[in-house]
Nucleic acid binder design. Structure first.
Lengths: 249, 249
DNA sequence: GGGGAGAGATGCCGC
DNA sequence: GCGGCATTTCTCCCC
């Protein structure tokens, strides 16, 4: 595709506020929160309807460069080095971010005013895990009495807390995957916060997760905290049942 | 585009290991680390050369659904509900993840064997910040003597450490943006680690970042640590100079 | 808008 | 492979 034709197409598509997708050979310069330079290579470029821009290499799941919502674009043809180059200049005033995409070849170009107002429905998150523990406190231990969610919010972001059968205070930090050093640090912060807020020194801290790293377990024990193996709800177990339910939407 | 034609095209493109990009109206089911359902809508689908899959809505910067590298695909035509539907079944054995993309309309289809071995060059990261402090220790304070990077690695992941002019030990945690509660927790862990490893009780902890949240500052002071305002190198300041240099690559 | 924390986080590096 | 951690993290929730 000729650069002039591409220039025309992309300007029209931007005008129409369409989703733009093209493949090209390009260099990319970025300046904003950090700075980057991406040498010549063949990539997919997407400009979305909210002005988000993504540059994807032919491999890897993350965009190699991107611009956020609120970006404005200007298209220029640069003839300074003899051959025709198309330069997309992207500017995000609010984020103080700038990008130049220097394009020397275009493989294909598509644009379309796609419409999609659907929201995704996800289950199996950490919040689901906390709710499961609230409903089935025996997953932590016999006699655990969690306090209500209303009280919960009042004291901040602690996942679950309540009293054990001996009326000792319990703070629980839940992780849906692996408990690590950060998770133990987090639990420690919450336990200390509760001790201070409630003026009590006898507070149990429990890390509830399916798995824990050895270093995290050591640190947990150093602080006198406990590990309780808990899996997030519907995590890989009941595929059949769940899939049937999900198809019902 | 007819479903049959699309079916043929996508099978060929997968065979050739090309980058695949198409726009369609679809529903998406996912089951793996969590579970999700995405109702009907118009989206861009990308399958990359490493078998990564991305589903992008016409807005927002993140993919609404995705599959990682190592995914295998099978394409099926489903006639069970009268109309022809194309179903892409994605399976990642290693990650134990599964996805069904149920497509009822295709707006465009492109594929291309893009080639790109370039690596991005980034500056202004936390690592750059640590290196800057190593080179210009006076950014922390007069008389600060950082220890060598070799010793650094030996004790783990502490950004920078060394001695002040009075030979007191200093541990520095650098953040390129805002220092928050997590950063203070992290610094605290490192200070405690050093105290234990070196058998000394008098260790200064410094959080070096351009900005800090009020709560983080309070927590920092509670632990007797210090905040030092340090900006990451070349962060928004010398745009002109840097851009010139970057063009030299 | 800022603060705090999760994410189907991803990616990088080191052991 | 796991562990620890940064990320141009992004996104969400709540104040």
């Amino acid at each position: 595709m000729e650069i002039e034709e591409f220039c025309e197409k992309i300007r029209n598509a931007l005008e129409q506020n369409a989703v733009i997708v093209f493949a090209c050979s390009c260099k990319v310069l970025y300046k904003g929160r950090a700075e980057s330079f991406l040498p010549e290579g063949e990539r997919i470029v997407i400009i979305k309807r909210d002005s988000t821009l993504l540059i994807h290499q032919p491999k890897y799941s993350n965009p190699i460069n991107y611009m956020k919502e609120g970006t404005s674009y200007s298209i220029e043809i640069d003839q300074s080095i003899g051959e025709n180059l198309l330069v997309i200049k992207a500017k995000n005033q609010k984020q103080k971010e700038f990008m130049d995409i220097i394009i020397n070849k275009v493989y294909f170009f598509e644009s379309s005013c796609l419409k999609d107002d659907s929201k995704i429905i996800i289950s199996g998150t950490e919040r689901d895990m906390a709710e499961m523990i609230m409903k089935k406190p025996e997953l932590i231990e016999e006699g655990f009495k969690p306090l209500s969610r209303e009280e919960h919010t009042k004291y901040g972001f602690i996942d679950v807390f309540g009293y054990d059968k001996n009326n000792r205070f319990i703070v629980i930090e839940a992780k849906r995957y692996v408990g690590d050093l950060k998770a133990v640090s987090q639990l420690r912060r919450y336990v200390e916060k509760i001790k201070k807020l409630r003026g009590i020194s006898d507070v149990r801290g429990i890390l509830a997760c399916p798995r824990i790293t050895p270093n995290a377990l050591k640190m947990l024990y150093d602080f006198g905290f406990e590990f309780k193996m808990v899996k997030p709800p519907k995590y890989l177990e009941e595929f059949g049942k769940r899939q049937k339910r999900i198809f019902d939407f």
